[in-house]
Nucleic acid binder design. Structure first.
Lengths: 172, 172
DNA sequence: GCCCATTTGTTTAATCTTCAAGGACAGGAC
DNA sequence: GTCCTGTCCTTGAAGATTAAACAAATGGGC
């Protein structure tokens, strides 16, 4: 099977990927998979949590009072509230995050980074940064770094929040 | 907390990320997350399986006799044998893949793409390609596409198979 | 006050991934 | 042949993610 390529496009055939596009796409899949895996393993080993969970602690650490409403945290981290609920349950069990009721909205909950969580973050951060450097920035020229940033912003822009119009091409 | 940035590096501080590097890294995380999520949803909706499983079917479809030894398939798809075992079990239950014993190595198993699996692939491919186009190639200039390919190859190269020397910088 | 749609966050079950362990066979040393 | 080590693949349990359903509270319209 030719997967996504096509020698010549005939009438209303899907627009397959060229050989070059396919090469790029596979490189993309391969690299992003390896890198995410690499980060996950590093953090699992050095901090005892997956990359996404680490990201949650970072968001909390950057917030005033080291606290954020669940929904806000979910939005910042771009994950669903459901996933966040599970994640915070786990982080709470580890003593790295604490929940607090919201005074003025009785439905609300704050996720609060504990001192212990802060400590874990402090210990893990250097290794994490070093890993990012090693795997990414040290290998790219300044131009490539710049280009990577631009490209990633374009991609993200096209897939934004609710993907409104993503499959409504006439609205684009 | 400043996460990964640092105004000025003092003695043997970890080499934090500059504001610009941090911006790029976050764009990368955001974009790759959104895109993978986007592909997963598209395939789950249109083909009833996650992106990784789809990739397995593709690898099989591209192989002679539409079959591959488990270990080979795992290596091609860059996943662990364990993960592959579970995945094939699921695909087998769906009737898209069949297992066959290896004649000359009684430990061995082939994963074989069934006609039904081939059919699923055939039906899903156009939508999948269109999604990739929409989300990625249609938004990038030819130069950006080229650059993306180069960058991704560099990243993958640095994280190759066993990552030998990944945290042994003196061997690099 | 009373409704009702919406928001907030959790819960359940199903699915997927990872990790550690293990069974079966292969291939070479002896 | 026996023993040993390594390879091939599976298994089971624990962790993580998703989707759908849900209770509680809010906030507006009336």
């Amino acid at each position: 099977m030719e997967y996504m390529t096509k020698a010549a496009a005939s009438t209303d055939e899907p627009q397959w990927l060229t050989a070059e596009e396919q090469r790029i796409w596979r490189s993309y899949l391969h690299a992003t998979y390896l890198l995410e895996d690499h980060m996950d393993r590093q953090l699992q080993r050095d901090a005892g949590m997956p990359h996404v969970y680490y990201g949650l602690l970072v968001k909390l650490a950057e917030s005033p009072q080291r606290r954020l409403r669940m929904t806000e945290l979910a939005m910042h981290a771009k994950i669903t509230r459901s996933r966040l609920s599970h994640a915070v349950a786990r982080l709470e069990k580890n003593g790295w995050v604490r929940r607090e009721d919201c005074t003025w909205d009785k439905r609300g909950q704050f996720a609060v980074l504990t001192d212990q969580g802060m400590e874990v973050l402090r210990n893990a951060a250097p290794g994490h940064v070093a890993t990012v450097r090693n795997a990414l920035f040290d290998r790219l020229t300044p131009e490539q770094q710049k280009s990577l940033g631009e490209i990633m912003e374009i991609i993200a822009e096209g897939l934004q929040p609710d993907e409104a119009g993503a499959d409504l091409p006439w609205l684009r």
